[in-house]
């Protein structure tokens, strides 16, 4: 679905006259493959290059060197630009910056309308997308009056209405309260499972990553770790070095290991930890 080969991107810093004065390599030779239907999470500290990488997936940025393919289409191929953007939708951090309509259903219909989809078909897609994110009953509402989590779900519906095969979400929950965060993550998981949408989720909340199929960790523009959530979160010290964290259940297990209790590595959820603790207690 998504394939990057030696993907490199330099930001140029320009002076007043437009001359390049310095360069910063934000993405540095990334090789990566995301299969169709996968749920992939990307972690990394601020400035590690993850958002820059994400912006390549729907051709907002084009590689300085290397290549990125979406569904076999090279993002440098200008003729395929709109196919790529229709195929790989993007959702950003701030819901207020990505909603433009004055009524929820108009906002969701904006994408397909731009693609030249016939009117009847637009309304069908609006309805099915709002249904998929659980916002159908708000179709006639003004987006201004929605909560942050609801706005983000409308933004996701807007992307879904374009019938993409892949959604890239760049910290979609950073500005939300706990309920909003849960509702957005559940929506994304549901789209992945039920509609087989490929998901690429960038986040700073480790709890949101537990159910991903694979995790990529970025540092200094490179992919420095990859594996299942279990494999990644087993490396508590390494993640802390990379300015990251692990889920609380993992951290509690880690603290107990340090105190000499023999718990296995890679415990991710409260359920697993409870089970392991009960087993341990019965042997003591």
């Amino acid at each position: 679905m998504i394939r990057a080969e030696k993907l490199t991107f330099d930001y140029e810093k320009l002076d007043e006259t437009g001359q390049a004065v310095s360069m910063k390599r934000a993405v540095d030779g990334v090789d990566l493959e995301v299969r169709s239907g996968e749920f992939v999470a990307i972690l990394g500290h601020n400035g590690s290059g993850k958002s820059t990488l994400a912006k390549h997936i729907n051709a907002i940025l084009l590689p300085t060197e290397g290549t990125l393919w979406v569904d076999g289409m090279d993002t440098k191929d200008e003729n395929r630009l709109w196919d790529i953007r229709q195929d790989a939708g993007m959702v950003f951090q701030n819901p207020d910056n990505q909603i433009i309509g004055t009524v929820v259903e108009e906002d969701v219909g904006f994408g397909p309308e731009n693609l030249g989809v016939p009117t009847d078909e637009i309304w069908r897609r609006v309805e099915e997308s709002l249904q998929a994110v659980g916002m159908l009953k708000y179709r006639k509402h003004s987006p201004n009056r929605l909560s942050g989590g609801q706005k983000q779900r409308v933004a996701i519906a807007g992307v879904m209405a374009m019938h993409p095969r892949c959604i890239v979400l760049d910290e979609p929950t950073a500005m939300l309260d706990p309920h909003g965060r849960r509702s957005v993550i559940r929506t994304v998981q549901k789209l992945n499972k039920e509609e087989q949408i490929t998901v690429i989720l960038i986040t700073h909340y480790m709890e949101e990553v537990i159910e991903a199929d694979r995790v990529f960790v970025m540092d200094d523009g490179k992919v420095v770790m990859q594996g299942t959530p279990k494999e990644i979160f087993s490396q508590v010290d390494r993640l802390k070095e990379l300015r990251l964290d692990v889920p609380q259940a993992t951290l509690v297990a880690y603290e107990l290991q340090k105190r000499g209790f023999p718990l296995p590595d890679g415990i991710l959820s409260n359920e697993e930890l409870v089970e392991e603790l009960c087993r341990l207690k019965s042997k003591m």
Binding site: D177, P178, H179, Q248, N270, L277, C278
Partner: peptide, 17 residues
């Protein structure tokens, strides 16, 4: 619309066991 820290839920489940 809020929550408790993850560990709060952990302690409740342990207690239930």
């Amino acid at each position: 619309g809020l929550d408790a820290p993850q560990v709060t839920y952990l302690m409740k489940s342990l207690k239930e066991k």
